[in-house]
Simulated assay, not measured.
Amino acid sequence: MNILVNTLNSIALVSLLLVVQQSQASSGYVFVSSEKDDQVTVFEATSMDKVAAIKTSQRPRAMKLSNDGALLYVACGDADVIDVIDVASLAVRQSIEIGEDPDRFDLSPDEKFLYASNEDDGLVTVYSLEEGRKVAEIEVGEEPEGVLVTSDNRRVYVTSEVANMVHVIDVQSRELVENIVVGNRPRRMLLTPDQKQLWVSNEVGGTISVLSTESYQPIAELNFFLRGVRAEAISPVGMVMTKDGTRAYITLGGANHVAVVDSASYTVLDYILVGKRAWGIALNQDESRLYVTNGKSDDLAVIDTVRGKVIRSVPAGRVPHDVVVDD
């Protein structure tokens, strides 16, 4: 009898694990937001065949998947909303009113709150996903853009394009606790896997500021040099880092290249030619492929990270902005 009970319990446990694994399975999609088409284009990650074009609110830009991959959040700047796409049905489920011109946003690790930058108002809006309402508006510098919540849910970092600063918000008090001067027109940010460094892309300055998250003091500054390319055309924006923190990939905007950076030495290892105005960037799960949106050539470049070469380029709507990979 005990053997039978143990066997049944084992079968039940295996079944439960299979259900959990299936619920957490990736969609196998690559999502690209298209500013001028008011849509998110969906590709099958392996073949890069087009699966669907999801109509969104006006001017979709930044995107982020929920932790379980069930929802895709999309900031729609000209509609003043965050659209919520159901990944299973590939349709917009909800539009969250978030204030004027939401540029970028991030979710708290527990997905209870959404933090969005309102570029026109110089605000960060805090929205409770549980309560379905705004719970705070925090004043920051002019034209806020990048938003990044720390993995310990203690701080929110926000870039201000006009003030040339990164603002540090305390999550509990919802107050500014630090203003860090960086380069000219800061746009995006990333945290190293150990959370000890904050990287900030300075679009007009043409540099990357590397800051200590303990002291907020500068650690390094990355510069880029491309033969035959004017310095003012080098405009770093999008960044992504490997899981082990050894490599960073940075889009260089009007320079039409992606820089490959050794994260330990802060040196550029390679420049990869992509399309016109390289902007959004994302790695796939095994980090064998890098995806780059090219806003002025209206395409998505797929890079083989081992070879350091573009292996495919696919049309991705008019002015593709951001890319999210769920493979």
Rank of each mutant, 00 (worst) to 15 (best):
N2P: 03
V5P: 01
N6Q: 09
N9G: 01
I11A: 09
S15K: 07
L18C: 07
S23M: 14
S26F: 00
K36Q: 08
E44V: 06
S47H: 06
I54Q: 14
I54G: 13
S57E: 13
P60Q: 13
R61S: 12
K64A: 12
K64N: 09
L65N: 10
A70V: 11
Y73K: 10
D83F: 14
D83G: 08
I85P: 15
S89Y: 08
S89F: 08
V92E: 11
E97D: 07
R104L: 00
E111T: 02
L114S: 00
N118I: 02
E119L: 04
L123D: 09
E131P: 00
E145G: 05
S151N: 11
E161T: 01
M165Q: 14
D170M: 04
Q172P: 08
S173L: 01
R174F: 03
V181Y: 14
V182T: 12
N184Y: 04
R185Q: 09
R185K: 07
T192D: 04
P193M: 01
K196P: 00
L198G: 05
L198V: 03
L198E: 01
W199D: 04
W199T: 07
V200M: 09
V204M: 10
G206I: 04
G206E: 03
T207M: 05
I208K: 05
E214T: 15
Q217N: 11
L222S: 08
F225S: 15
G228L: 02
T242C: 04
K243A: 12
D244S: 09
D244Y: 00
G245Y: 00
A248Y: 12
A248E: 09
T251R: 02
A255F: 03
A264R: 11
L269C: 02
I272F: 06
I272Q: 11
W279N: 14
N284M: 11
D286P: 03
D299F: 05
L300Y: 05
V306H: 15
R307V: 02
G308S: 07
I311H: 04
P315E: 13
D322Q: 11
D326M: 04
